[in-house]
Design a binder for these strands. Structure first.
Length: 125
DNA sequence: TAATTGACCGATC
DNA sequence: AGATCGGCCAATT
């Protein structure tokens, strides 16, 4: 069984380039329900933070969660802009760059398998 | 066991 | 748009 952190990392890794996802959505996809608060710390615990696209995770409404002036924030802004994401007044336009699974059966099947592996449709317990 | 702390969320003013 | 407040969940004191 994958740990909670691992599920979070997998979901974040599934966010396409140039798109962003909110903490709440990541939590829900990872099976945490409303555990949005667990996502940030989990990203900080990621072993290979350079490879994980943590910068594609933003707060509700597209707000950048990292505190102004922090190094992490600057990195996030730079990486997002490098991917073509427009950031205005400290937030991204979710209507334009927001990502949610369910944009096609292919994507859904792929995500399901990524999260739960083959046989995800088999009965639980 | 209880209090505190977060890269949070949503409604409200 | 910005500030406040209550709710949320897990880890740490």
């Amino acid at each position: 069984m994958a740990t909670r952190d691992e599920r979070i990392w997998q979901v974040v890794a599934a966010i396409p380039r140039g798109r962003v996802c909110t903490y709440g959505t990541v939590a829900a996809l990872a099976g945490l329900g409303r555990g949005a608060r667990q996502v940030g710390p989990a990203l900080g615990r990621a072993p290979d933070r350079t490879r994980l696209p943590w910068h594609r995770v933003v707060a509700a409404g597209g707000r950048i969660a990292l505190p102004p002036g922090s190094a992490g924030r600057r990195t996030q802004l730079a990486r997002l802009r490098a991917e073509g994401v427009v950031i205005r007044a400290g937030r991204v336009d979710l209507a334009a760059h927001g990502w949610e699974p369910g944009q096609g059966p292919v994507a859904d099947a792929w995500l399901d398998e990524l999260l739960w592996g083959p046989g995800a449709l088999a009965p639980e317990e």
